[in-house]
């Protein structure tokens, strides 16, 4: 047996594992996309029909449903606001934890991380009680405020790790040249962590866009979010698979696009916790 055959035979299980991995995680997603484009009569044909004339009928139905359209725009608004506020709050905090000396720095950082340990179900009851008194139920402000509780701890921690990677010398040089700390932060340090800002932005947007528990209890008809609205196609009386799949694609589409744009950074952001 020649050397080349040995290596190619050795590679066989690896190639097989690769194909299995891609199939296991990609096929279900493609299946949703295919269903969303199938004519109604083809959705339930067995064996599954792989060749069909694509139709946008289900998307028309989905977007023609007031609840879905409003859900998508509410979700987009709330996720964008959450992302912007998260950046506004967490960039300065991350910088301070990474660079400045101040009393109780470690305990405060630990506190920030620790707040995200609590399961969201734990916050539902207090938020419900508080929001019904403060008249914040079913308002954009209320739900954005709650989403900050999910995104701020994570974002502060992520930004801190990115600021720690910036060489101190850069900033010290700027300080020596007469820059104030604020100016040095904006002009010299911030451009070095644009990657980190992008990951923080993308992940806080995705988290808010995907959120379900708070949205299901603390919002109603006015501020209904897309992940809650999609349940409307799956009632006990009828299951509209076509429009359901189309809505699923509309909800997951933006997330997938963002993930494709920033995949390396997101993988780093998601797995960072395992290495620190």
């Amino acid at each position: 047996m020649s050397c080349a055959t040995v290596t190619s035979l050795r590679a066989l299980p690896r190639v097989a594992a690769m194909l299995v991995a891609v199939a296991v995680w990609v096929v279900p997603v493609l299946w949703v996309v295919a269903t969303s484009l199938k004519p109604r009569t083809d959705i339930f044909t067995l064996p599954p029909r792989l060749w069909f004339t694509p139709t946008f009928e289900h998307y028309r139905v989905a977007l023609g449903t007031a609840d879905i359209l409003r859900g998508l725009s509410n979700s987009a608004l709330v996720a964008t606001l959450t992302m912007l506020l998260t950046l506004l709050i967490s960039i300065p905090a991350g910088y301070a934890y990474a660079r400045l000396r101040f009393p109780y720095r470690e305990p405060l950082f630990f506190y920030t991380l620790f707040t995200q340990m609590a399961p969201p179900v734990g916050f539902l009851i207090p938020f419900f009680l508080a929001f019904s008194r403060l008249r914040l139920l079913d308002t954009h402000a209320g739900i954005v405020l709650i989403y900050l509780s999910m995104s701020v701890p994570f974002a502060v921690w992520l930004m801190t790790t990115y600021f720690l990677d910036v060489p101190r010398e850069l900033e010290e040089a700027a300080l020596v040249d007469g820059c104030s700390r604020g100016r040095a932060l904006v002009r010299v340090v911030l451009p070095q962590v644009y990657g980190g800002v992008a990951v923080t932005a993308v992940l806080s947007f995705i988290n808010a866009w995907n959120e379900f528990i708070y949205a299901s209890v603390l919002t109603g008809a006015r501020v209904r979010m897309a992940p809650v609205a999609i349940f409307g196609f799956l009632t006990t009386e009828e299951t509209l698979w076509g429009p359901f799949a189309a809505t699923a694609v509309l909800i997951m589409g933006p997330v997938v696009v963002l993930a494709l744009l920033a995949q390396r950074q997101i993988v780093r952001g998601l797995t960072l916790g395992a290495f620190r």
Partner: peptide
């Protein structure tokens, strides 16, 4: 592969 394995983690869990 990276895209494939990234998908299930970031897709809307309720969906």
């Amino acid at each position: 592969l990276r895209v494939a394995v990234l998908l299930p983690m970031i897709l809307t869990p309720v969906v």
